[in-house]
Simulated scan of single mutants.
Amino acid sequence: MKHITLDEQLKEKVPGYCLAVMSFEMIVKPTSDSLKEEMALLEQRVMKQLTLETLLKEPRIAAARAGYKSLGKDPSRYRLSTEALLRRLIKGNGLYYVNNAVDIGNILSAQTQRSVAVLDEDKIEGDILIRIGKDELYEGIGRGNINIENIPVYCDEVGPFGTPTSDTPRTRITETTKNILVFITSFNGVDGLLQDVKLAKDLFTRFGQMTNFSLEIVE
């Protein structure tokens, strides 16, 4: 497990910011039929339970949006990944099939209503600092350069590699990935995080044959 620190300025501006960090090994494979079925069931549940209007009233979504606002960022312009994902499902657009690790992360994010980062731990160099983003170069996966100023940023010795809005190609999961690091980000404290971890363990065990699991709650 990498050593992870939260910057004091971030904690001061968003007192409820914390995260569950999981490290484990798994077998990365193409999306299986059983995983596709799990994703389809999730899509149906979301469409039945949420609308674009009610989504914004969900406590975890509301807390995350408030966290962005407290940092000076417009959450409607720079959406958190979990909100963007749920909006996609509400509109009837299904999840992409990437691989089992990424797909599980999307299921986990939609079910927990928290931003989830699924990262190749071997591509992260040195310790990790989570700080407020500055005016700095950042490429989001499939999004080109994005503005990460005034949002939480995950940084290693090389530089930023992830945010609750978008991760970078540098630490993305590939079929050769073996060691996984997962961030489940909360903007309203640790309540419910251990239940989210339990769900994550179940999903990664069922669909990724997870082994050598370790957990840290960072706050």
Rank of each mutant, 00 (worst) to 15 (best):
R87P: 03
T31M: 00
F207D: 07
L71A: 01
D135L: 04
E175S: 12
T5S: 14
T211Y: 09
T176S: 14
R131T: 15
P30L: 08
N100E: 04
A63V: 12
L52N: 09
D135F: 09
P169Y: 08
T51E: 04
I151Y: 00
Y97W: 04
T185M: 14
Q9K: 13
L129G: 02
D135A: 08
L56A: 02
Y154R: 09
V14I: 14
G16F: 10
E149D: 02
L86M: 12
A64H: 12
R60W: 08
L85P: 01
G142P: 02
G144K: 05
K13Y: 06
T211R: 15
F204E: 04
D196A: 14
K29M: 13
A101V: 09
R45I: 10
D120Q: 05
M47E: 14
E219V: 05
R45M: 09
P59I: 00
L199E: 05
L35N: 04
P59R: 01
V182Y: 02
V21Q: 04
N212T: 08
Q113P: 04
F213I: 02
N179Y: 09
S34H: 04
S186E: 10
L10P: 00
T205G: 00
V21N: 04
M39C: 08
F161H: 00
P169M: 07
I128Y: 09
E175P: 01
Y17E: 06
K201T: 08
T51C: 07
Q9E: 11
E83R: 06
A101E: 10
N145R: 11
V102M: 13
N99Y: 07
T177E: 01
S70N: 15
E83V: 05
Y68L: 15
G94S: 14
T112A: 12
N150I: 02
S34Q: 09
T163V: 07
Q111H: 14
G126C: 08
E38H: 02
T171R: 01
R206H: 08
G67V: 06
F187M: 11
G140E: 08
R79T: 06
V190L: 03
R87T: 05
M1H: 14
L10M: 06
E139H: 06
N93K: 11
K36A: 08
R143P: 02
T31S: 09
F213Y: 13
Q195K: 15
V158K: 13
L56R: 06
K57E: 12
E219N: 11
R45A: 11
R88Y: 05
I61C: 10
T185K: 10
R45T: 06
Q113A: 15
V14C: 07
I184N: 08
F204W: 11
K69I: 02
E37K: 14
G144R: 03
D191S: 14
F213M: 09
T5L: 13
R170L: 05
T5Q: 15
A40F: 03
S186D: 13
A117R: 08
A84R: 03
S34E: 13
P59V: 01
A62Y: 01
E38T: 03
